[in-house]
Design a protein around this nucleic acid. Structure first.
Lengths: 204, 204
DNA sequence: GTCTATACCATGATAGAC
DNA sequence: GTCTATCATGGTATAGAC
């Protein structure tokens, strides 16, 4: 019994430490991207030594993968937490807002796009791909429902809509607008969401 | 006279060689981004030795800067080459199409966004900043004219429109859609342009 | 047993000798 | 113009301290 509780305590400490490491990694990934992020920095930010970090995560890649997986889990939880009666288009908008919020707080690494050594390798990570497919399935369903209601352009293929929505999540216009200093974070988000759904032409 | 013509020939050779170097750099920048691009690769692709490349361009940074400047010059020339009677919104759309076309041919490096060591330093490059400001001025004028005609949402601040348009230029949805293999390049561009101007909601 | 300090090794940007 | 050296960086492995 004594042994069991000691193990549990140690496991909890481990959990806490790993969460701290993942938080530091997420911030670094968001700020510099995978290739520019160094394990040294992450370790420093997490307040531990580099080699200690390697005890928890065997490589830089597995570190990044863990962060991405955790993020996707949070996004999936966000969607599943929305009230079932909420209109599908509002759910889509809610997810975009959630992502942009996270991003403006420095917490959203750009999804592995081109020009990252990471992207390719992630596609062979079961846990990651599993969640990506999961997310895609949910989004596709949402989009179809929204299109049926006519509140999303029914002439657009579903994957075009889904990918366009993902893309808005890492829209560089966020940084541009923030740099001007003209707008609050909330205004930036509002404009971005508005342009995403109503386009530059606006109207209705 | 003989000396003069020999110099001229040599200068022409230089010009040609430097154009080849810049083309190789542009392709590399488009494919891997600044940080992942190595001068070795560029030299190899240009068919010369690394050290020779350094005779032409003093550093990796000045190489990238030269590429960006040339690109901005091409973009400015594109805009200025459009017929004056063309409606401003069509000019905006034309520029977006031009950029996406270039990109799908592997020729458009993502503009220096976050997570690149380059971005910061470019802002202290006179020639680069000069052209950026030039471009912004032209775009702002175009947007104002289009808004006056009511074909771009008049409630959006001009800088929001301008930056949103820049952002579409490097929209990762391009890669996503291309990876699905469902669409031709032309279809990808059409959908992207449509979504940019009419939004996901579509309609009119 | 878990963390720290340090050693190792490859890569890639420059600089200098032919 | 090329070839070769230098130097810094950063991922990873090992060896000792509490």
């Amino acid at each position: 019994m004594g042994i069991i509780s000691r193990l549990t305590v140690r496991q909890q400490q481990n959990r806490v430490r790993e969460e701290a490491i993942l938080d530091a990694t997420r911030a670094m990934l968001a700020r510099k991207g995978y290739d520019l992020m160094t394990v040294d920095e992450v370790a420093a930010e997490a307040g531990i030594a580099k080699a200690s970090l390697y005890k928890h995560f065997g490589s830089k890649e597995s570190l990044a993968a863990a962060v991405m997986i955790r993020l996707l889990d949070q996004a999936l939880a966000f969607i599943d937490g929305l009230p079932p009666e909420m209109p599908p288009a509002d759910k889509m908008q809610g997810l975009l807002r959630w992502a942009l919020d996270l991003r403006l707080e420095g917490g959203l690494p750009l999804l592995p796009s081109t020009s990252s050594t990471l992207q390719f390798n992630m596609l062979s990570n079961r846990e990651y791909v599993k969640r990506i497919l999961d997310m895609n399935a949910r989004m596709t369903t949402l989009v179809a429902a929204a299109q049926a209601q006519g509140v999303i352009d029914p002439e657009l293929p579903a994957d075009v809509v889904v990918f366009a929505l993902y893309a808005r999540t890492c829209d560089p216009a966020v940084e541009y607008l923030r740099m001007t200093g003209h707008y609050t974070n909330q205004q930036v988000i509002d404009y971005l969401v508005r342009v995403a759904f109503a386009g530059l032409r606006g109207g209705r």
